[in-house]
């Protein structure tokens, strides 16, 4: 049980860690000042949530690892984030489409976790859900604004959606970890979130004049850790470099 819970908490924390890192790569390069501020703010929230999830994971594991140890001293195969969040930023449209596809799932997930039988999980979910409500609102507005903007912005958003769509399915696939969490009343059955997710996407894509791809094929291997994309290793090389190069230092 505690192994499964540890895995599950790593999934939550690795999602926010990896996406927070990706979003932070934008610093100083956004299309307009307000977006620089909003992107930094989103990254900051996600890094804060990472600390909560991974500290709890370390506590559950009971091997003396804290959030920093887990973030900076695991290799690719130990990461449990969705493939979606490790995808590169691309242009601003791709970054915001990735954010929207993740936020829409993230908020549903957190709302379900607020009713978790595990009080610590419920508390982190409650705190995070306030931040993620804002993330989703902003991502929704941006996807609609750019989807229904100029011809160029529309085409770029449709291309972003087409490119990222194969990474959506993984969010709703269940495995042993999910089943154990569901049985213990800790977390929802992933598939149970899909109808609300689809309904939200339909509304937003209609307003954004975007077409949802027909093919529902979904890549897998991120949350199980079995097969990440090549992108994650490069990200970790950068993120973990100082900790790895100077392992005896404190910062």
């Amino acid at each position: 049980m505690s192994d499964h819970l540890f895995e599950y908490l790593c999934r939550m924390g690795d999602n926010t860690l990896v996406l927070g890192h990706r979003v932070s790569e934008w610093c100083g390069h956004a299309p307009v000042l307000e977006e620089d501020i909003a992107l930094a703010n989103t990254a900051l929230d996600l890094i804060g949530q990472t600390t909560l999830w991974l500290d709890l994971a370390g506590e559950v594991e009971g091997a003396g690892r804290n959030a920093d140890k887990l973030a900076f001293h695991r290799d690719v195969w130990d990461f449990r984030n969705l493939l979606l969040v490790e995808q590169p930023n691309g242009d601003f449209g791709q970054t915001m489409m990735r954010q929207f596809l993740f936020d829409a799932w993230h908020l549903l997930q957190l709302k379900a976790l607020m009713g978790s039988s595990n009080a610590q999980v419920a508390a982190i979910a409650e705190k995070s859900s306030k931040e993620v409500t804002y993330h989703l609102e902003r991502a929704t507005d941006t996807v609609i604004g750019l989807g229904d903007g100029t011809e160029e912005s529309h085409n770029r958003m449709q291309a972003a959606l087409d490119k990222l769509w194969p990474y959506v399915g993984e969010m709703f696939v269940s495995d042993d970890v999910d089943a154990a969490m569901f049985d213990a009343g800790i977390a929802p059955d992933p598939a149970s979130l899909r109808p609300a997710y689809d309904a939200l996407l339909d509304d937003v894509f209609a307003a954004a004049t975007l077409v949802r791809p027909q093919d529902d094929f979904g890549h897998k291997g991120g949350k199980s850790g079995k097969r990440h994309s090549e992108h994650l290793g490069h990200m970790l090389a950068q993120m973990q470099w100082l900790q790895r190069a100077y392992p005896d230092a404190t910062w």
Partner: peptide, 13 residues
């Protein structure tokens, strides 16, 4: 690089 974003959002508004 951000020109299309600003233009898109202005057009939508």
């Amino acid at each position: 690089d951000g020109a299309w974003v600003r233009d898109g959002l202005m057009a939508h508004a």
